[in-house]
Amino acid sequence: MSQPPAFQIDGLRRGYGGGWRLDLPELEVGRAEFLAILGPTGAGKSTLLRLLHFLDAPEAGRVDYEGKPIPFPAPLEIRRSIGMIFQRPLMVSGSVRDNVAFGLRVRGQHDPRRVDDLLTRFDLMHLARREARLVSGGEMQRLALARALASRPHVLLLDEPAASLDPGHAAVVEGIIRDTHREDGTTIVLATHNLGQARRLAQRVGVLVGGRLIEIGETRDVFDRPRNALTAAYLRGDLLTEEASPP
């Protein structure tokens, strides 16, 4: 018997100011899959990630997680098996090290070696004792990923994880994301504007426009032979705003 998928979405809807901000009749994310969600600003990418993290309740439909329907509010163990990088990461008061250790501490775990290892991998060791709220945007973004990985989540949700990074650190972060997927078998859903990043990392790509998934397929197929005209326009850079509505 094969394992149930990481996520199985059925008739998921989330409203916003009268219309549906997100309207997904179905979507499946396999175990250990790497799915990238592309789409213009305001397309509903962040909304989708929050629903997948069970931080937000859908207005209609359901999300099954590892084969089970999840009620809202979701049980703590379910939420704790999922990690997320927010587009604008916020630091908890304390040092950079405190932030990396935060997820472990709330789980009652103490693993200074894991924390040190992450600080080193993310090139943050020299900042370990610095107040986290005072580090730069790029450092904060690396810290946010280190912090989310500390507790070894089954699923990692990434909302523009490399937006404020310089090219060198963006490459480091991409490498770590790739390793997390390949070596740890972590399921990853990446929401991004960065087409190159999606192409380099993801196995499948979905295109979200106006809250609807207009296309989904193998990364190479979507990039090389988009079936939807809006996808083609988006990939060319001709689709700019959230006003673009699905066909």
Binding site: R50, H53, L55, L76, R79, R80, I82, G83, M84, F86, R88, P89, L90, V92, F102, G103, V106, R107, R147, A148, S151
Partner: peptide, 14 residues
């Protein structure tokens, strides 16, 4: 920040 509690919850806080 209104998003702060959400991010803390995301890190596994009860």
């Amino acid at each position: 920040d209104p998003e702060f509690p959400l991010q803390v919850r995301s890190l596994g806080a009860n």
